[in-house]
Nucleic acid binder design. Structure first.
Length: 435
RNA sequence: GUCCCCAUCGUCUAGCCUGGUCCAGGACAAGAGCUUUUCAAGCUCUCGACACCGGUUCAAAUCCGGUUGGGGACACCA
């Protein structure tokens, strides 16, 4: 059975690059109904942190990459030592004593050619004379990355190692260890790296935003996964929106690109909007609830869920990230709306008391207060006053929402309700009349 | 410095393996227009690339070599 692994180190968050590596591994496992193994590489006790581990696990779960098994290297030190000892007894490794009397185990690298067979890149040949003897067990007793990695991949029966391009030069070193230990060499697939817009590798400074941050910003996991999927792979038929189940059946590790890809947030935004439009408003509303509570838009309990769902429905097509809703729809939840200064100057500087009052009167008389009748009423008024719709629509929108942009005005009025609409319009009427 | 990888529009990519159907297709972004009640969406259109040089061939984006450019690795970090 095919077994792949994703091996993050809890010395930092799971970021975009790691997320994509996890995705390709997971996809590869799913495609062949194999196992997706998670291995936490926490041998460096000083740098490993519980918060990072939790963050990584949560992010993976959020993205939907469920793992079949999980291991912690920190619990396997005995296994590494045992294997290192074996190499020493066979004369393939030696012990080096430091000045303080501490012992490290070093692997002897003999001159030879090492061929790496890569599923994505083909064969790559290395000359072992350019490789120094490798430390297996450090003098503090912990294993080095390359050694623990080989022992684990072999003993966990990993059949395919799918990892970032940056590991390509570790591979010949690891192959030497597989051979020395008498293990089968797994298949390798080195994924192209994701580069920052400014060039160079992603880093804290250059857009290596953690997966959890995208989550916090309001990106949907499906959208992020779809975006990541297209970074280095394509279904080949010009489609951009590919659902994960389909991706599983279409994905082929051999078809992955060799070229590094630059992270393009504009496309991610577009992708997210595509998914927002396709996703059920109820689901989105439920995701938004905690945030709305936090913002004091709604009470923890006793809020009108159906109302929020309707509003989300009203906005979701025009959102870039889900959390934009909080800013765009604030006027539906708050009474003291902030009126944009520029909008006010542009649309509410002239006296519209008469028009507003007439509109209110007409709305009052309305028996069926729904979107169609509201619009009908408005059109009547405009005709009666013999003015252009736009001359009144924009001022009313600003008076009701404080903004120049938003959903259609009649929807806004409908969801705001008769009373609130009246109250907000009256603010501008009474003020003008008093002068 | 040494070793390794990569090279199609600004970005993500299709095509490359199995040369001709490619004066290179799609998507994002940008620009224009339509629609319109603003924004977004949607629809239509425009802009825009085979890094360069040489070779092989009747024919090269596709095969080969070199140059240049970009990236990665050379830790008792992972």
């Amino acid at each position: 059975m095919m077994r792949v692994r994703f091996a993050p180190s809890p010395t930092g968050n799971l970021h975009i690059g790691g997320g994509r590596t996890a995705l390709f591994n997971w996809l590869y496992a799913k495609a062949s109904r194999g196992a997706f193994v998670l291995r936490i590489e926490d041998t460096d006790a000083a740098r490993s942190r519980k918060e990072y581990l939790d963050e990584i696990l949560q992010s993976l779960a959020w993205l939907g990459f469920n793992w079949d098994e999980i291991y912690y290297q920190s619990q396997r030190f005995d296994i590494y030592r045992e294997h290192a000892q074996k190499l020493v007894s066979e004369g393939l490794a030696y012990i080096e004593k430091s000045e303080e009397g501490k012992e490290a185990i070093i692997f002897r690298v003999s001159p030879q050619k090492i061929k790496v067979r890569d599923l994505i890149r083909g064969d790559i040949e290395f000359d072992a004379t350019t490789i120094k003897d490798q430390v297996l067990i450090k003098s503090d007793g912990t294993p080095t990355y390359n050694f623990a990695c080989v022992v684990d991949d072999a003993t966990m029966h990993i059949t395919h190692v799918v990892r970032g391009d940056d590991h390509i030069s570790n591979t010949p070193k690891q192959i030497l260890l597989y051979k020395a230990l008498g293990f089968n060499i797994p298949g390798f697939a080195h994924l192209p790296l994701i580069l920052a817009k400014e060039g160079g590798r992603l880093s804290k400074r250059k857009g290596a935003t953690a997966i959890s941050e995208y989550r916090a910003m309001g990106y949907l996991p499906e959208a992020l996964v779809n975006y990541l999927l297209l970074l280095g792979w394509s279904p080949g038929d010009n489609r951009e929106i590919i659902d994960i189940c389909e991706a599983i059946s279409l994905f082929d590790i051999k078809a992955v690109n060799k070229t590094a890809a630059v992270l393009d947030l504009d496309k991610l935004d577009w992708m997210n909007n595509q998914y927002l439009k396709r996703t059920d408003a109820e689901k989105l509303a439920d995701q938004l609830m905690p945030l709305l509570v936090e913002k004091k838009y709604i009470a923890q309990e006793n809020y009108d869920r159906q109302y929020v769902v309707s509003l989300v429905q009203l906005f979701k097509d025009r959102l870039c990230v889900l959390n934009d809703f909080v800013d765009w729809a604030d006027f539906f939840f708050l009474d003291n709306i902030a009126v944009d200064e520029e909008a006010r100057g542009k649309f509410l500087s002239t006296d519209l008391s008469k028009e507003f009052r007439l509109f209110i009167e007409k709305l009052e008389k309305l028996e069926i207060f729904d979107i169609i009748h509201i619009e009908e009423t408005f059109r009547e008024l405009v005709q009666q006053l013999n003015i252009q719709s736009r001359a009144l629509i924009h001022p009313i929108r600003v008076a009701l929402t404080g903004k120049t942009v938003g959903p259609g005005l009649f929807e806004v009025i409908y969801y705001l309700g008769k009373e609130r609409t009246k109250k907000r319009l009256m603010r501008w009427v009474t003020k003008e009349e008093a002068e």
